[in-house]
Amino acid sequence: TEHYTFHTEEQAQRAAKKFKKQGLPVTIHEKNGKFTLQVN
Rank of each mutant, 00 (worst) to 15 (best):
Q38K: 07
H3M: 13
T5H: 10
T5G: 05
Q22V: 08
I28A: 01
H29G: 06
P25H: 15
T27S: 09
E9Y: 15
K21C: 09
L24R: 08
K34A: 08
F35T: 02
G23R: 04
H29I: 14
A16I: 05
V39M: 06
K21P: 02
H29D: 06
A16F: 06
A12L: 03
N32T: 02
Q11F: 04
T8H: 04
Q11K: 06
T36V: 15
G23P: 01
A12Y: 00
Q38Y: 14
F35P: 02
T8S: 08
K18N: 08
Q11T: 05
K17H: 10
F35S: 01
T5Q: 07
F6R: 00
T5E: 10
P25M: 15
K18V: 10
K21L: 13
K18D: 07
K20Q: 13
L37I: 11
R14H: 09
V26F: 08
G33M: 02
I28F: 03
N32W: 04
T36A: 05
K18M: 10
R14P: 00
N32M: 05
N32R: 03
N40I: 13
R14K: 11
T5P: 04
Q22E: 07
P25V: 15
A12K: 00
N40W: 13
K31M: 11
L24V: 11
K20T: 10
L37A: 02
T27P: 00
K20A: 10
T5A: 06
F19S: 02
I28Y: 03
E2M: 14
F35A: 02
T5R: 06
K17Q: 13
L24T: 06
G23F: 03
E2P: 10
K31S: 12
E2T: 13
A12S: 01
T27K: 07
T1L: 12
R14A: 13
T5K: 05
K31H: 14
E9M: 15
K31F: 13
Q13M: 13
K21H: 09
Q13N: 08
T5M: 09
V26M: 03
V26D: 00
A15H: 05
T8G: 03
Q38D: 07
A12N: 00
K18I: 12
R14C: 07
A16R: 03
V26A: 05
A16E: 04
V39S: 03
F19P: 01
T5D: 06
T36M: 11
A15Q: 05
Q22Y: 10
G33K: 02
Q38C: 13
K18G: 07
K17F: 07
E30T: 06
A16C: 12
F35G: 02
A15I: 06
L37S: 01
R14Q: 12
K34M: 13
E2D: 10
H3I: 14
T1D: 09
H7P: 11
K20H: 10
V39H: 03
K20D: 05
G33H: 03
Q13T: 06
K34W: 09
E9D: 05
I28P: 01
T1R: 11
N32D: 14
K18E: 12
T27W: 07
R14D: 10
K20W: 12
E2K: 14
A16S: 05
Q11I: 04
Q22G: 05
V26K: 00
L24A: 04
K17E: 15
A12D: 00
H29R: 10
E2W: 15
R14I: 12
F35W: 15
N40R: 07
P25L: 15
K21G: 08
N40G: 15
H7A: 14
K18P: 05
E30M: 09
F35Y: 12
N40Q: 11
T5I: 12
L37F: 04
V26W: 04
G23K: 03
F19H: 03
E2N: 12
H29W: 11
V39D: 02
T27F: 09
T27D: 05
E9K: 14
H7R: 09
T1F: 12
H7D: 15
H7T: 12
F19V: 03
K31I: 13
E9G: 04
R14Y: 08
K21A: 14
F19L: 10
F35V: 03
N32G: 07
Q22M: 14
G23S: 03
G33W: 00
T1P: 11
L37N: 01
P25D: 15
N40V: 12
E30P: 05
E30I: 09
L37Q: 01
Q38V: 15
E30D: 05
V26C: 10
P25F: 15
N32V: 02
G23T: 01
E9I: 15
A12R: 00
I28W: 04
E30S: 07
A12H: 00
F6I: 00
T27L: 08
H3S: 12
R14M: 11
L24E: 02
H7I: 09
E10K: 11
E2Q: 14
H29E: 11
I28S: 01
A15G: 03
E2C: 12
A12V: 05
A16Y: 08
Q38H: 12
Q11M: 08
K21D: 15
G33I: 00
K21I: 09
E30W: 07
Q11H: 06
V39L: 09
K31T: 12
N40E: 11
Q11P: 01
K21F: 07
K21Y: 08
R14N: 11
N32H: 06
Q38P: 00
T36S: 06
E30V: 10
T36N: 06
L37G: 01
K21Q: 14
T1A: 10
Q13R: 12
N40S: 11
K17T: 10
N32I: 01
T36C: 09
